[in-house]
Nucleic acid binder design. Structure first.
Lengths: 225, 225
DNA sequence: TCAGCGCATAATATCGATATTATGATGCGC
DNA sequence: GCGCATCATAATATCGATATTATGCGCTGA
């Protein structure tokens, strides 16, 4: 399968959790395409599990905006559109800005160490071309926000992260060229956070998103997707 | 029973939807108390339906932060706390501010008529002491934001609304005294929206929330809940 | 030739039953 | 008398089967 896995260990406890994580990966990575009908029975076989866990997982994904439910007519992978992407990008900028500022405000030594570690792990995964890079990348970004002491806000950010990264996968290799200075951008953000330089951190972070975002919007606009 | 119903017609299609709406009401109104164990079998009998719809509904409510899931140990109604309430209030102010500004920016005649109508219905329900007031109240607030053209943001707002109003129910009649000038506040907001006076509308709306919020925080602080 | 009705097919939504897992009490050993 | 392991109980999580509902095709009649 060779699946990157944006999420946590998939060997976890309940079948529902496994199905949830697995399906989310499939959708985020585009293996299940936007708008694609998600037939219970098909997925049941694919994930080798019963219908109940599948349905529950799909319900959860519905709340994450990754799946659309049509009463009595099953589920589909959520559609994509330029508008949708713009919305995600805009919201993400607003909410992460908010969260990052709160996070830095509450900054503690533990948090500082946490982000340093998360950054390092991401870096290592990157140089090693590891499968884990995606997970580490998300972990780093969430770590930045983690001191915000606002679980709901963090949950929103996490959801938006997934929604956003889905578009990156859809753009696929078109995006590889611009592995540009992402690394340096990450370092800048990290440095600013350690220095408790809220403004720079926020500016850099948002710019980080907007740059990638603008590029993706371009692709979407040209109908490449 | 005499249940106000914060949500839509509960006679709708699927058992899952019914269970979802019903359970949400039960939790929001406090009939199912914070932290209370939600035993599948109990609910199954109470709502006269099977286990699958219940589980699916609970999964959905988990995503709404109204229910907590403990793997292999079932579900509980989400706990409440002063911190949690403050978080909801803060987030709600930020997000609704954002949404309201967008909404006014996109204001159309249709939207204007929509909010006037929603306001009128709420008023009528209020004077008639109708059961529907809660639903109308939410409808009015959501209508204000409805031109925002950002479904995800609106969904977040809707969720936060429910979370917030849950605390109002928990405070119960202690809150009745302060039916104060809520009516006039609503009118002010409506008027400002019609006038496209973004700043006033936003200020009034946020003040509306913060006033009620401060009062509730007070109650929570004194351990009245 | 085409629109509309009705049937066959396929998928969903739901139920009832089972296996698995937590929980609380009981008794044994120390 | 107290702590710990063990067992009975109760609840969850999951499965397989069924009933209900949508869907697409072919047929009829204009």
């Amino acid at each position: 399968m060779a699946n990157p896995s944006v999420s946590e260990p998939s060997g976890s406890a309940s079948a529902t959790q496994r199905a949830y994580g697995r399906l989310r990966d499939l959708i985020v990575t585009g293996e299940l395409k936007p708008g694609e009908k998600l037939k219970i029975d098909g997925l049941r076989q694919r994930l080798a599990t019963g219908a109940s866990p599948i349905r529950e997982a799909l319900s959860l994904l519905t709340s994450d905006n990754l799946v659309e439910r049509f009463d009595q007519r099953g589920f589909r992978a959520a559609n994509v559109s330029e508008n949708n992407f713009r919305e995600i990008l805009t919201l993400r900028c607003s909410l992460e800005d908010m969260a990052l500022r709160q996070s830095i405000e509450n900054a503690s030594q533990a948090w500082e160490e946490h982000i340093v570690l998360a950054h390092h792990r991401m870096q290592r995964a990157h140089t090693e071309q590891s499968d884990e890079f995606e997970a580490r990348h998300k972990a780093f970004h969430m770590a930045l926000l983690s001191a915000a002491d606002s679980p709901i806000l963090l949950k929103f950010c996490s959801q938006l992260y997934d929604l956003n990264i889905r578009y990156r996968y859809l753009a696929g290799n078109a995006l590889h060229y611009q592995q540009r200075d992402v690394t340096s951008e990450h370092e800048q953000i990290l440095t600013a956070c350690i220095a408790r330089d809220t403004q720079t951190a926020a500016d850099t972070l948002l710019n980080h998103y907007k740059t990638t975002g603008a590029f993706l919007t371009g692709l979407l606009g040209t109908g490449s997707l």
